[in-house]
């Protein structure tokens, strides 16, 4: 139940943002995070952004998905 996924912010209106989760658009509430801008990645759980990711966080996540994270075992 504690699933959360990273999503990229596409647009922002007030406290609500359109985000893209692997291409699918969803609306998320930004009331629990500060200083989110279009283009940022946020961690989304049950309709809320729980955390804003830095560029470094996003790079690590992409590397994990690509299998190129230095820690990856395969």
């Amino acid at each position: 139940m504690c699933l959360a996924v990273p999503a990229q912010v596409v647009s922002i209106r007030g406290n609500l943002a359109q985000v893209s989760v692997e291409g699918a658009l969803r609306e998320v509430h930004l009331g629990l995070v500060d200083d989110v801008e279009v283009g940022d990645y946020v961690l989304v759980h049950a309709g809320f952004a729980l955390e804003r990711w830095t560029e470094e966080d996003v790079r690590e996540w992409r590397a994990i998905l690509d299998g190129t994270w230095p820690g990856r075992t395969e």
Binding site: M1, C2, A4, H29, L32, H45, A46, G47, F48, L50
Partner: peptide, 8 residues
Amino acid sequence: GFETTAPG
């Protein structure tokens, strides 16, 4: 839910 869900 737990602390993940409670703030929302």
